[in-house]
């Protein structure tokens, strides 16, 4: 693949949003694993994430529209996706959207959800977990003890 084509391809993928958290792209979430040899490699976030099929269909549509009909999409499971794969830009966007981003290092500490979460509204770290499971598989429900606003927290994974 030529350099210019690879750059265009990356821009196309950057334009594909996550269906459940539309402020971040599939690249920023770490779903896109690589682009080479005529194929885009992707990995699912959660085993049962209902968005997985939608994400693949959206990537296909974006590729086709940009004239990359010959590019294949390959799905791999290993190494398993981790919240560490979310880029720094992705973390900033999650926070601005009102979702506390996951701390880094989830791979080392598989259950780090008991650590402190920063309130995305007021910045307080005086917060508590309301429910380990939230509105989507990737989020837990938290509440800020300072401003009392509830917020979603991206779960360590």
């Amino acid at each position: 693949m030529r350099g210019g084509e690879a750059a265009t391809l990356e821009a196309v993928l950057q334009s594909v949003e996550d269906p459940e958290i539309p402020v971040v792209s599939v690249v920023e979430l770490g779903i896109v694993r690589g682009l080479d040899a005529g194929q885009v490699t992707i990995t699912p976030t959660y085993t049962g994430c209902p968005a997985t099929a939608v994400i693949e269909a959206n990537i296909r549509e974006a590729l086709d529209q940009a004239g990359f009909e010959d590019i294949q999409i390959k799905t791999v499971l290993s190494p398993a996706w981790s919240t560490d794969d979310i880029t720094d830009a992705g973390r900033q966007k999650l926070k601005a959207y009102g979702i506390a981003p996951p701390p880094k290092g989830a791979k080392a500490a598989s259950l780090c959800n008991k650590s402190v979460a920063e309130c995305p509204h007021c910045g307080s770290i005086n917060t508590r977990e309301i429910s380990r499971f939230g509105s989507t598989p990737c989020k837990a429900l938290w509440q800020c003890n300072s401003c009392h606003e509830p917020f979603d927290r991206f779960k360590c994974h």
Partner: peptide, 13 residues
């Protein structure tokens, strides 16, 4: 929500 999420994980498996 918890039980629905657990169910979803299992159906994914």
């Amino acid at each position: 929500l918890s039980l629905a999420n657990l169910g979803l994980d299992l159906i994914g498996q």
